[in-house]
């Protein structure tokens, strides 16, 4: 079975301070100085796939794992990390740097699906949302481009009796849906309690991964020029940073007891009809 997991690297927004949220004429925010991390839903998707491939080990059809990202060079480091922990291929699709792909899920999903079709993968796994654009649409659009069914908010994937059958647990309105499904399929990971964090490669694995080349594919090689990638869906007009407009009153006190008493007497009592 050929599986592709698509992931996105994002800036660790929690490390940005108020003054860092400013943008240039093209509405780009300088996030180059902040460390980048895997989008958390993608991180779950990647770890879950490694666990899934372990289950497939004993089946006759061996598993081939591809980690795929649409990014510039900064993605390479993360791809190497993924190769070190068990992905067979690290693929980066490079777009023209002049294109703003942040809010362009159509363009991204077009690129991804072209690559998937070209390589003959039968299972595509993505995280539910994330990235600067917070679009939350890429997975759905990959399914549309490929004409495949799609399951969203997946929480667990296991192998059913044969390698083209999967048991997929997902969240739907007020319930958990358990399905036995046939491939090909697009899975969109939601909150996975089983595999929230990616494993860490050993020194040896890291060393071996360094020897493996990454695959860099340009958007034009996938048959999409800048014009074809240009967003026909939406145009960004401007950005806005909310100012909570609150000024927090800090309760001082010599002891926790004193602070708790102040909090209750001054603020909570009137609000709670205890």
């Amino acid at each position: 079975m050929k599986i592709a997991v698509c992931f996105k690297i994002i800036a660790d927004y929690d490390r940005m301070s108020e003054k860092d949220w400013e943008w240039d004429d093209r509405h780009f925010i300088d996030i180059s100085f902040v460390r980048h991390i895997f989008n958390c839903f993608d991180e779950s998707a990647l770890e879950m796939t490694l666990k899934l491939s372990k289950q497939l080990e004993n089946l006759p059809d061996p598993c081939e794992l591809t980690a795929l990202t649409v990014d510039d060079e900064q993605g390479d480091l993360f791809l190497k990390h993924l190769i070190a922990i068990g992905f067979d291929h690290g693929v980066r699709i490079q777009c023209d740097g002049r294109l703003d792909m942040r809010f362009n899920s159509h363009g991204i999903s077009n690129l991804i699906s072209r690559y998937i079709r070209q390589e003959g993968q039968t299972l595509v796994i993505l995280g539910y949302q994330g990235g600067d654009g917070d679009n939350g649409q890429t997975g759905f659009l990959v399914a549309e481009h490929l004409g495949w069914p799609c399951i969203r908010e997946v929480i667990e994937v296991t192998v059913a009796e044969s390698s083209d059958l999967l048991k997929v647990k997902s969240r739907i309105d007020g319930a958990t849906l358990v399905q036995r499904v046939k491939l090909p399929m697009v899975l969109i990971m939601g909150h996975s309690l089983d595999s929230p964090y990616l494993r860490v490669p050993t020194l040896k694995q890291k060393l071996n991964a360094k020897k493996k080349p990454l695959t860099i594919v340009s958007s034009t090689e996938l048959g999409l020029d800048n014009d074809a990638l240009h967003s026909k869906d939406k145009t960004l007009m401007d950005l806005h940073r909310h100012n909570p407009g609150k000024s927090c009153v800090f309760l001082e006190g010599k002891t926790a007891q004193e602070q708790a008493k102040k909090l209750y007497d001054k603020y909570l009592k009137q609000r709670l009809s205890l």
């Binding site: 490390r15 301070s17 180059s32 902040v34 460390r35 929230p196 964090y197 494993r199």
Partner: peptide
Amino acid sequence: IIENWFNHLNWGPEKITEERELIRKN
């Protein structure tokens, strides 16, 4: 880059918990 990194270097309870959970899970 260094300034941003340095401002997040301290170990509060949240980092200790994060570490604990990573140890436990992985």
